[in-house]
């Protein structure tokens, strides 16, 4: 596969109350971001198991973007801290599996933070494009 034709697949974890509306807002404002992104919503970003992230890479995603609740989480005032800790764990697991850690990114996305979201996904897309498909990395070893 030539890197030229390569379209990185990005899994976005969003949250029902905060970041998913922020991602909607990007659509409403017709702000474009890579269409190879896929969005999966959960109640709160602190529930994302590191295992889910690894599962995404195993299933063929080239990158994962955590659109976290940030300081606006309706459940937990320290949501960012918890999410960051879990993401760090996932990142370590990626390292163990030989997956480039820059394929994983977390950012607090508020319910109208469409720009921040679009910029974040685009830059992750660009980075991943440079890295090539995840299957070229340690994934084979991982499964």
């Amino acid at each position: 596969m030539s890197t030229h034709a390569f379209e990185p697949k990005i899994l976005v974890f969003s949250t029902n109350i905060i970041s998913d509306p922020g991602i909607d807002q990007a659509g409403m404002s017709h702000i474009n971001y890579p269409s190879s992104s896929r969005i999966l919503r959960v109640p709160c970003s602190s529930m994302i198991r590191p295992e889910f992230i690894i599962h995404a890479f195993e299933s063929g995603f080239d990158a994962v973007f955590i659109a976290a609740d940030g300081g606006d989480c309706p459940y937990l005032s320290d949501c960012s801290v918890r999410t960051a800790r879990n993401v760090q764990r996932a990142s370590e697991m990626m390292k163990e599996n030989g997956i480039d850690q820059s394929r994983l990114r977390m950012a607090g996305i508020c319910s109208v933070c469409s720009d921040a979201f679009a910029k974040g996904v685009k830059s992750l897309y660009d980075i991943t494009k440079g890295l090539g498909p995840v299957r070229s990395e340690g994934h084979d070893r991982a499964s």
């Binding site: 109350i17 905060i18 509306p21 300081g71 606006d72 309706p74 508020c110 319910s111 109208v112 933070c113």
Partner: peptide, 12 residues
């Protein structure tokens, strides 16, 4: 004083 986003709060 918490600088949370107004839409996030009023949106719910």
């Amino acid at each position: 004083p918490t600088l949370d986003c107004a839409s996030c709060i009023s949106g719910t």
